[in-house]
């Protein structure tokens, strides 16, 4: 039996990069948070959804060879830490690239891709990955 609701709950956040902005200090967070780690109780009820643009810069990256089973067709694949223009740093794959196209500091943007499948009969899980800006 596969998973379902745990994925569905986050699908909007993953499909459209919906994070939260603290109404108290204006810091933008992705992934979304219910409480601001800076403002604590002053942020309760003030965390508003905000859509991030998905553009940012590579902080660091790796090429993953030892992969969990579901990434077998993409091995080896690029994982990166991306600092988004709005502030938060997130973790994601960089796709459609060769090793010489990726480097610390390069600009990237999000694309909508398949991340995983719950086997042959389960649901398909989509989410964000990155491509290098040409």
């Amino acid at each position: 039996m596969g998973e379902l609701s745990r994925f569905w709950r986050e699908s909007e956040h993953r499909y459209r990069l919906i994070g939260t902005k603290c109404g108290n200090c204006s810091v933008t967070y992705f992934p979304p948070r219910d409480i601001c780690p800076k403002c604590h109780r002053e942020s309760i009820g003030k965390m508003k959804p905000v859509q991030l643009q998905g553009k940012g810069e590579i902080i660091s990256y790796t090429i993953v060879h030892d992969a969990p089973p579901r990434f077998i067709r993409q091995r080896p694949y690029f994982m990166a830490l991306i600092k988004l223009d709005e502030g938060p740093t997130i973790t994601g794959q960089i796709v459609d690239c060769d090793a010489d196209e990726v480097d610390i500091g390069k600009r990237v943007r999000t694309v909508f891709r398949k991340v995983a499948e719950e086997g042959k009969s389960g649901i398909i899980e989509y989410g964000y990955k990155f491509v290098v800006d040409q």
Binding site: Y15, R73, Q74, V95, D96, V111, F112, R113, K114, V115, I124, Y126, K129
Partner: peptide
């Protein structure tokens, strides 16, 4: 298509 592309991902990119 790349292994992580399908009609849904392609349609989303076209729509965007």
């Amino acid at each position: 298509p790349a292994p992580d592309e399908d009609v849904a991902t392609i349609s989303v990119e076209a729509a965007r």
